[in-house]
Design a protein around this nucleic acid. Sequence first.
DNA 1: CTTAAATTTGTCAAAATTTGACAAGCCAAA
DNA 2: TTTGGCTTGTCAAATTTTGACAAATTTAAG
Lengths: 103, 103
Amino acid sequence: MANQFGGRIKQLREQHNLLQRQVASQLEIDTPMLSKIERGERKAKKEQVGQFAKLYNADNNELLILWLADQLFDVVEGEDLALKAIHMAEEEIRIHSKSAKRK
Amino acid sequence: MANQFGGRIKQLREQHNLLQRQVASQLEIDTPMLSKIERGERKAKKEQVGQFAKLYNADNNELLILWLADQLFDVVEGEDLALKAIHMAEEEIRIHSKSAKRK
DNA sequence: CTTAAATTTGTCAAAATTTGACAAGCCAAA
DNA sequence: TTTGGCTTGTCAAATTTTGACAAATTTAAG
């Protein structure tokens, strides 16, 4: 499983000298769960991304991007055509966001 | 739900003048299911992508790319940060495929 | 070492999601 | 109208995800 997000929040936790125990209790999860999120064994809920950002005084968008990227990565992991698929998806997104201007 | 894939296989079916009934039986699914796949209400199994390609004499890779792209799209659909996340994921993929050379 | 705290690993049932199958509906063409 | 092709809706079964807990492992300190 991809793990940019987990790596980043682990780094942030260490920079803040916090223990998993402390962070976990803030997010109302147990330490095994936090451990798994940091190592990418489980994925955080979207809601929790914001909680991490707040707790660590980090940029919400930065974390959200990492979190999304991990999920994208998971979809195409191991596929030879991953890059082509990504480009195709990117085009689609561009098209959709244009027409979303007038919604 | 994204639907590049469904649109394409519908187009192919029409070009070949086949009925859903006929195609469905080849893939051993029922017509409602095929209808849903064509309209993107359900997603085809990866295995079925190949079956479509064969049946329609289409390029396997082309279909697989569309199929993957749809799933990528679903992950970031509606996200403001979609493009940034896509770019991040793309970088990750590049990195991984490099180190996969010698595996 | 020996202990104690921190983290990781493993397991499992409950919850949530996805799937396949079927019945019924719609609609255009004859 | 009836018929054939496609779509819509529903539901239980299968699969996947989740959260919680116990146990094992690692780390750091005395």
